[in-house]
């Protein structure tokens, strides 16, 4: 087992006074891919957003430890600079800000051992071209405003592009597979597979066995009503398809 990257320890979260997560435990080690599945409204997005520190998610108990540091009280940007990344289920538009400028601004925040990481425009361009080719993204993408008028699939690709560019130690991808056609799904899955090496952790939130046909998770966690009700290997996802969440929750 690789070193521990992310520990979610008995996490309780409220959103607008309403308890959503009720004691979630989850541990990701280097080199692992985890999948979180569960019905609509189970709290999957709340979980990954709480890990990144969304101000709406009020942590009422437990803690989040990233690379040995308790990040529970940290602001979102600080967590990001330490190497946490969230691919959004519904990325918002930022009108007037081009994809290129946005990526450059985000890259400018990178830290290695706490020191700002200098990247020249040339290196930036080279890296960008390479990742865009990997994801089958055309050049015209760069001049467009971030997520503004993007199709569902384009938004998801932009999320993956950001992940590849920023190179986080821990990537949480919230339904990055939703809204992709089969070719796009294969491309994105391929990129995630390549990204998930021995030194990083990946956590995928997904509804579909379909994605797991392309990305092999080491662990699958089933979240129902703010609690993890089942854990297992890749086969658990298959069981889910046949049994459904309700029965699974009842069995638990």
């Amino acid at each position: 087992m690789g070193e521990t990257i992310l520990t979610i320890d008995d996490l309780h979260v409220q959103v607008e006074g309403k308890p959503i997560l009720r004691g979630v435990n989850l541990e990701v080690h280097a080199g692992e891919i985890h999948a979180v599945m569960g019905p609509n409204g189970a709290g999957k997005s709340t979980l990954v957003q709480a890990v990144l520190g969304h101000p709406r998610c009020e942590v009422t108990g437990g803690r989040i430890v990233f690379l040995g540091t308790d990040v529970t009280g940290m602001k979102c940007d600080e967590r990001a600079r330490r190497g946490l990344f969230l691919g959004f289920q519904n990325p918002v538009a930022v009108p007037g800000v081009s994809v290129a400028n946005f990526l450059l601004a985000a890259m400018g925040t990178r830290r290695v051992d706490g020191q700002p990481q200098k990247i020249s425009i040339k290196e930036f361009r080279t890296a960008l071209k390479e990742k865009m080719a990997q994801l089958g993204i055309g050049d015209s993408f760069l001049g467009r405003s971030v997520n503004d008028g993007f199709s569902g699939g384009e938004r998801k690709r932009l999320e993956v592009l950001q992940m590849l560019m920023l190179g986080p130690t821990m990537a949480l991808l919230d339904e990055t597979d939703s809204g992709l056609d089969i070719d796009a799904l294969k491309t994105v899955a391929g990129a995630v597979n390549r990204y998930a090496g021995s030194s990083v952790g990946v956590l995928l939130v997904t509804h579909y066995q379909r994605l797991l046909g392309f990305v092999k998770p080491h662990r699958v966690h089933v979240l129902v009503d703010g609690c993890v009700v089942r854990r297992g290997g890749p086969d658990l996802a298959l069981d889910l398809e046949s049994v459904g969440y309700e029965q699974l929750a009842a069995e638990a």
Binding site: K75, C76, A80, R81, F88, V94
Partner: peptide, 16 residues
């Protein structure tokens, strides 16, 4: 939140 989750401080995010 979106911009800050990419590492931008609140004020840099606002400026953007």
């Amino acid at each position: 939140f979106y911009l800050m989750s990419r590492g931008l401080t609140e004020q840099d995010a606002m400026a953007l």
